[in-house]
Design a protein around this nucleic acid. Structure first.
Lengths: 201, 201
DNA sequence: TCATGAAGATGCATACTATGCAATTTTGCG
DNA sequence: CGCAAAATTGCATAGTATGCATCTTCATGA
């Protein structure tokens, strides 16, 4: 499955550990205090590195909080391209994103921290959605590839990418707003069903 | 049409002039140099006020560049609520947003500056779309009102709001990416037609 | 094993955004 | 005019973000 597991030197392991620690602490603090209550200095103090080192790993605080799963973009790409041809692009997207969200959901603690952070700071929504399941630039390109259309002259790939993002956003928001009385998966699937049906209710 | 035109004291006129000047210069600079090339100080120097004054008017630089038309939110609200009942919510939205976009388009110079800024700094898209035609919070509320549904337990208002935003975004992006070979209105209407048809191509 | 070069971490300087507060200036009005 | 309210400003402060020089740590080969 993965490319290289064994040959990881101490250097690389330390780098990953530092990066993970910074992101974990940043997310935890954001979940506890909301974005306004988190500073880079507080995060680096907790981890035990300098502020400057933080910016060697992340270009801004939000990137650390919302950092994407490793390989997420590539998984999405493969899922969309390899989906059965009899599936519409919209349904291929639905399955691809569903897989990706399930993948994230496996790390339950992380998922909880993300939703807690989201509740306290809704502005994180963009970062989370983009980072985890639907980077729009990549999505437009891969949809254009599947559909065999030019993304700069044909509307459909772009519209599909943006609309699927919108569906995820709306689903997460409703899931949180409704106090999680329904499962997220059920809301999310309903959203795509409504899109497929034409939004005419 | 408007509420009060005559009784504007010198004080209020000066305030508006300052605000307009700051926003105009900020947008012009962003169009010329891109966001990274604009500083608050450069804007205030051009206008002839202090940096501190800028932050009395706007909470951040982006707000000055993407500031909403006065009354836009209320126009949207009325347009959605007063649209004929035989129109689906999606079509009511289409007309409301279309009106709003046409309203902006009348100020042709401003429109050009906005698209130029957008080309140089795509991150402005969120601010422009939100500010000009589809503030999502307000839109969810007004859609819930029209549909007679609870926005915290029913998916449709939220999904409609997010999806219409997505349609505007996709339309603007394609319009810019395609070198404006089609009119924006035609792209935008095609987007809503595809949404209504169910995105099944 | 250990010397050396590369990669990473750090401190420091700098630029910019953003906010609170106190002092000053401008405006509106009796 | 002269006062009170409102707007502008300067100053202090906190935080984000980047470049650069220096120092430390790791990896590699002789």
């Amino acid at each position: 499955m993965s490319s290289d597991d064994a040959p990881l030197g101490l250097r690389e392991r330390k780098k990953r550990a530092t990066r993970d620690a910074l992101a974990d602490v940043a997310l935890r603090f954001a979940a506890e205090r909301g974005m306004e209550g988190v500073t880079v200095e507080a995060v680096t103090d907790e981890v035990g590195v300098s502020v400057r080192t933080f910016f060697n790993y992340f270009s801004c605080l939000e990137d650390a909080i919302t950092r994407p799963d490793q390989g997420s973009a590539e998984r999405m790409r493969q899922a969309v391209l390899n989906a059965p041809q009899e599936l519409s692009a919209l349904n291929a997207l639905r399955e691809a994103i569903g897989q990706e969200l399930a993948h994230i959901d496996q790390d339950h603690e992380r998922w909880e921290l993300q939703t807690a952070a989201l509740r306290k700071s809704p502005s994180l929504m963009n970062g989370f959605v983009t980072a985890r399941c639907a980077d729009e630039r990549a999505l437009v390109a891969v949809l254009a590839e599947r559909l065999g259309k030019d993304p700069d002259s044909d509307l459909s790939p772009r519209l599909l990418a943006h609309v699927s993002n919108a569906a995820v956003r709306a689903s997460v928001e409703l899931w949180v707003a409704s106090g999680r009385t329904r499962t997220f998966q059920s809301i999310y699937r309903q959203a795509f069903a409504m899109l497929a049906a034409g939004l005419s209710d």
